[in-house]
Computed example of a mutant assay.
Amino acid sequence: MNDQDRTSIHEAMEQQSISISKAGIVTTLQARCSIIAAANPIGGRYNSTMNLQQNVNLTEPILSRFDILCVVRDLVNPESDERLASFVIDSHMRSHPLGDEDKADGEDGENGMDVDSDQNEDEQEEQIRSNRQRKAEQLKRQKESEISPIPQDFLIKYIHYASTRVQPKLSQMDMDKVSRVYADLRKESNTTGSFPITVRHLESILRIAESFAKMRLSEYVSSADLDRAIKVTIDSFVGAQKVSVKKQLQRSFMKYTLPSRRAHHSRNVPAHA
């Protein structure tokens, strides 16, 4: 990304608007959307001895505008590699345009069709075509159910309903806990010399907590939603650091990432009237 692109994207990500001044037109357009960006490390391989900013060569103002930073590394693991290869192969076989038809033709040849001798050839072809299409749809639904537990159409409707109809309230949140997390993040950021923690990250915790509540179609943000949002934010901050300070940061924030004893005790001990 060149310097001009970096400058132009700042307003869109900060003010959620874009100013245009060209050909006598001066106006401001709304740019409210979610941004998912991917950056390759310098040299094609992530260097764990450097932080994320040095690996991808992005400035601190841009990095601070993202709610979550995820470092995806290509680690050699036989189990995960085999699982990934199986997923890719199954995806290609499921999406191949001739795969289902071949299987449907094979089933037609094995099962045969009970067609009266007085039917003409056009009716036979139409019946064969409809039967083949029906079996192909059955095979496709079977494969989708094996790979995707939730049907794709239903998932799209669910996400749309949650984002447009559900607006969780923050009245039941532990604001003192959020303040402590923010203060600790600021302190560790200055100590380790990583990218600065700003008020944007405090707003990120609230947005992530609201997102978890929306996933449950809940009207209120619960303490569990807040804990998960804090854990995601801390994991994002720690994951973007170099390996020499990761363990130190993990120990420092362990009090926020580990499940509380009180919550664990309340789940295991039955309530008495």
Score class of each variant (00 low, 15 high):
residue 102 D to Y: 12
residue 163 S to Y: 05
residue 156 I to K: 07
residue 162 A to I: 07
residue 76 V to I: 15
residue 149 P to D: 00
residue 183 A to G: 01
residue 84 L to A: 08
residue 119 Q to Y: 09
residue 105 D to Q: 12
residue 140 K to W: 11
residue 137 E to Y: 03
residue 133 Q to N: 11
residue 186 R to V: 06
residue 180 R to K: 15
residue 150 I to N: 03
residue 96 H to F: 04
residue 179 S to G: 05
residue 120 N to G: 15
residue 102 D to E: 15
residue 173 M to W: 04
residue 114 D to W: 03
residue 97 P to A: 03
residue 120 N to W: 00
residue 88 V to K: 11
residue 176 D to F: 03
residue 116 D to C: 08
residue 89 I to H: 10
residue 76 V to R: 10
residue 116 D to R: 05
residue 107 E to H: 07
residue 172 Q to E: 11
residue 105 D to I: 13
residue 106 G to S: 11
residue 145 S to A: 15
residue 137 E to Q: 14
residue 137 E to G: 04
residue 181 V to Y: 01
residue 115 V to R: 06
residue 164 T to E: 10
residue 85 A to C: 02
residue 108 D to G: 07
residue 107 E to C: 05
residue 183 A to P: 02
residue 89 I to M: 06
residue 118 D to T: 13
residue 90 D to G: 12
residue 159 I to V: 13
residue 146 E to R: 13
residue 103 K to R: 14
residue 84 L to H: 06
residue 114 D to P: 00
residue 152 Q to I: 14
residue 143 K to S: 15
residue 146 E to S: 09
residue 164 T to P: 02
residue 92 H to P: 00
residue 166 V to P: 01
residue 133 Q to E: 15
residue 126 E to N: 11
residue 167 Q to S: 12
residue 170 L to E: 07
residue 82 E to D: 04
residue 110 E to A: 13
residue 123 E to C: 07
residue 133 Q to V: 08
residue 125 E to Y: 13
residue 164 T to Q: 13
residue 177 K to W: 01
residue 165 R to D: 06
residue 122 D to A: 11
residue 147 I to E: 07
residue 127 Q to H: 06
residue 124 Q to T: 13
residue 161 Y to R: 12
residue 184 D to H: 13
residue 123 E to P: 01
residue 106 G to C: 07
residue 127 Q to A: 10
residue 118 D to C: 03
residue 146 E to K: 11
residue 184 D to A: 10
residue 71 V to A: 04
residue 72 V to E: 03
residue 114 D to C: 04
residue 95 S to D: 15
residue 93 M to D: 10
residue 114 D to M: 09
residue 79 E to S: 02
residue 73 R to E: 14
residue 106 G to N: 06
residue 184 D to Q: 09
residue 156 I to A: 08
residue 113 M to H: 08
residue 79 E to I: 03
residue 73 R to D: 10
residue 159 I to D: 05
residue 132 R to A: 06
residue 86 S to R: 11
residue 71 V to M: 03
residue 149 P to T: 00
residue 158 Y to Q: 14
residue 107 E to W: 09
residue 72 V to M: 11
residue 166 V to A: 02
residue 101 E to F: 11
residue 76 V to P: 03
residue 128 I to E: 13
residue 171 S to D: 15
residue 178 V to R: 04
residue 131 N to G: 12
residue 72 V to A: 10
residue 164 T to V: 08
residue 156 I to L: 10
residue 131 N to W: 05
residue 87 F to Y: 07
residue 165 R to G: 00
residue 182 Y to A: 05
residue 96 H to V: 02
residue 141 R to W: 02
residue 164 T to D: 10
residue 142 Q to V: 02
residue 104 A to M: 04
